[in-house]
C-alpha cells in the first residue's frame, strides 16, 4: 500500500501515484484506492447516465474505453479496474482527474480548475477552460521567480477565503516549453505515452497549508481579440466566471451540491479581486505575464 497527501486528503492507494506527495501514515486515511472489479452499472435512484459514465449523489462510475473502469463512492472509496493493454500513466491520469473530482464533490469539497502561484502571504489563481493557458502562466511566473502553489486543482475552504493545493505536479504541452525557451522534459514525464504533454514536479516546494486567496484571473482565448484585455469583475459576473471553473462542474448537479458551491464561491468573490483576461491566439506568454503581473 502507498500513502499520499493529495487533494487535501490522506490517501491510501494500491496504485503508485508519483504525482502526489508521499506521506508517512500517522492518521487514518481519508480515501482508499484499490484495484478490483467495478460495478457494471449504477442502479440507485437518482442515477444520471451519460456517455461512458453514471453518477448519483453517492456514487460515480466511469468506464473509459480500453483504459480502465473506475468506481468512486461515499467520498472515501475508489475501485480501479485497469483494462487489458492499458498503460499505468493513462490509468492514473483519469483517476486523478474526473474520479478524484467525484470524491471531492462527494465530500462536499469546493474545487476549482485552477493553477496558482504564491504571492505575498497568499495565492493568486489562474482559471480558464482547457487550452486557455493556466498552466503556461503558472510556468511563466515560476520562470520569473515566483513559487508554485498548484496546477489543475485548487480547493477552496468553506469558512474562510483560503485555498489548498491538490498536488505538486504541473502539466504542460510541449509547445509551452519550446515557447518559453525551456528544455522539453524526458519522455518519461509524458502524462500519457502518446500525448505531447509533460509533468514536472515540485514536491520539495509543495505547501500543504491553506493560504489566503488574493486574486483570481480568468483567462479567455478569443480569436478576434486584438491584444490582451483585462477587466475587473464584480458581483454576479465575478460569481458566474468563477463558478464556471468549478472542477468537473457538471458533476455537482446530479450530486446536488449546488448550494455548497453557491455559498463558498459567493463568499470568495466578495472578498477578493476577480479579473477577466482576454487574449488572442497570437498573444505571447510574455505579454500575458506582464499584463497579469501588473494587477497582482
Amino acid at each position: 500500500m502507498y500513502y499520499y497527501r493529495g487533494f487535501g486528503l490522506i490517501i491510501a492507494s494500491q496504485i503508485m501515484l508519483p504525482e502526489l506527495l508521499p506521506y508517512t501514515l500517522t492518521s487514518t486515511p481519508d480515501v482508499h484506492i484499490s484495484i478490483g472489479k467495478t460495478p457494471e452499472k449504477l442502479t440507485a435512484a437518482g442515477t444520471v447516465h451519460k456517455v461512458g459514465y453514471a453518477i448519483n449523489p453517492n456514487e460515480y462510475l466511469l468506464q473509459f474505453l480500453n483504459v480502465a473502469n473506475y468506481y468512486a463512492a461515499n467520498g472515501n472509496n475508489i475501485i480501479v479496474e485497469p483494462l487489458a493493454g492499458s498503460d499505468e500513466k493513462s490509468v492514473r491520469l483519469f483517476l486523478l482527474t474526473g474520479v478524484m473530482a467525484a470524491i471531492l464533490h462527494q465530500r462536499n469539497a469546493v474545487a476549482l480548475n485552477a493553477a496558482a502561484i504564491k504571492h505575498l502571504d497568499g495565492v493568486v489563481l489562474f482559471c480558464g477552460y482547457a487550452g486557455s493557458g493556466k498552466s503556461a502562466m503558472l510556468t511563466k511566473f515560476i520562470q520569473n521567480g515566483y513559487k508554485p502553489f498548484c496546477d489543475d486543482v485548487c480547493l477552496i475552504q468553506h469558512n474562510d477565503v483560503k485555498a489548498m493545493a491538490a498536488y505538486p505536479t504541473i502539466k504542460n504541452w510541449e509547445n509551452t516549453f519550446t515557447g518559453m525557451g525551456l528544455p522539453i522534459p524526458s519522455t518519461d514525464n509524458k502524462i500519457r505515452p502518446n500525448l505531447p504533454k509533460y509533468a514536472t514536479y515540485f514536491h520539495d516546494e509543495f505547501d500543504t497549508d491553506a493560504l489566503p486567496v488574493k486574486t483570481i484571473f480568468i483567462i479567455h482565448k478569443d480569436h478576434i481579440a486584438k491584444s490582451v484585455e483585462i477587466k475587473k469583475l464584480a458581483g454576479i459576473e465575478a460569481f458566474a466566471e468563477v463558478h464556471n471553473n468549478v472542477y468537473h462542474r457538471l458533476q455537482i448537479y446530479p450530486m446536488k451540491k449546488e448550494a455548497i458551491h453557491f455559498q463558498a464561491i459567493s463568499k470568495l468573490v466578495a472578498n477578493i479581486n476577480v479579473y477577466q483576461v482576454t487574449r488572442s491566439s497570437n498573444t505571447g506568454f510574455d505579454e500575458l505575464f506582464q499584463t497579469i503581473q501588473k494587477h497582482l
Partner: peptide, 27 residues
C-alpha cells in the same frame, strides 16, 4: 470539445484523437 466534455465528464484534451473518434458518435 465542449459538447463532448459535457456528455462524457472527460477532459477531451487528454484523449488521443482515435479515442475521441470512438466516442463522438455516442455523444
Amino acid at each position: 470539445r465542449r459538447l463532448f466534455n459535457e456528455q462524457t465528464d472527460l477532459e477531451s484534451n487528454l484523449l488521443y484523437d482515435e479515442e475521441a473518434k470512438q466516442m463522438q458518435g455516442n455523444v
